[in-house]
């Protein structure tokens, strides 16, 4: 694809994601909030597609926009949630919130502005791809050699990912999940078990006796 078109599409989708994320916070009607969340997730998925992370984009669409949003809409319908009332907080809380949010936003943008490609008008995706080698210490052996301490107890880095011909990112992801992160997934299943047990024990109906 023409880099110029890719850059334009990136900015369009990023702006869309930003505006719809603002909509989630600002809109008062719960259904409008949920729908702008859907739009935000779809725009983010489009950004993923543009960056070449096809699987991530599809998963984002199927899992978030497909499954989780439907769940949210169901809850909104079942509970008959009313429009959100403006919170009656004092101006002190308001100022404090603005300050904290501003500090966080400033830190985030200063970290992001340091990245190559943040300035200069080129498409950030391209510039980041060009600098990929210096930006990934784990797969970059040169910088890694300087360390003075090399503790044996660390598991080590993920093996640098090299896509073979004809291999999709789905199979790469699957291989990583079921080899390197196998035990983490087992532990995560315990988290889901705890969540399920907790939800059932709290959600069961109280007997009236």
């Amino acid at each position: 694809m023409n880099p110029a078109i890719q850059a334009i599409l990136f900015y369009v989708f990023a702006l869309g994601a930003l505006l719809s994320a603002l909509g989630v916070v600002i809109l008062r009607n719960p259904v409008s909030c949920a729908l702008s969340l859907a739009a935000c997730l779809a725009f983010t998925a489009a950004v993923f597609f543009g960056a070449g992370a096809t699987f991530l984009g599809i998963a984002q669409l199927i899992i978030y926009a497909g499954a989780i949003l439907v769940l949210i809409l169901f809850i909104v319908m079942m509970l008959n949630v009313k429009d959100e009332q403006p919170a009656a907080g004092s101006w002190l809380y308001c100022v404090l919130g603005v300050v904290i949010a501003g500090v966080l936003a400033g830190t985030l943008s200063s970290a992001a502005l340091r990245l190559p490609g943040a300035t200069g008008g080129r498409c950030p995706l391209h510039v980041l791809a060009e600098h990929a080698d210096e930006l990934c210490p784990a797969s970059n052996g040169a910088a890694a050699g300087q360390a003075q301490t090399t503790p044996a107890e660390y598991g080590g880095a993920l093996p640098p990912i090299s896509m073979r011909e004809g291999e999709s990112d789905v199979s790469l992801l699957g291989k990583t999940l079921f080899t390197h992160y196998n035990l983490s997934i087992v532990i995560l299943s315990f988290a889901l078990l705890a969540g399920a047990v907790g939800a059932v024990s709290i959600g069961r109906s109280l007997r009236r006796d």
């Binding site: 990245l115 930006l135 910088a143 360390a147 660390y154 880095a157």
Partner: peptide
């Protein structure tokens, strides 16, 4: 994003901290 790894391996942390592009992101 800064280290390219989820492990706390000091080699990667060091590389990220001494990289001018990444040090702020790493501290964040």
């Amino acid at each position: 994003g800064a280290t390219g790894s989820f492990t706390g391996d000091p080699r990667f942390v060091l590389a990220a901290l001494s990289n001018p592009y990444l040090s702020v992101g790493m501290l964040l």
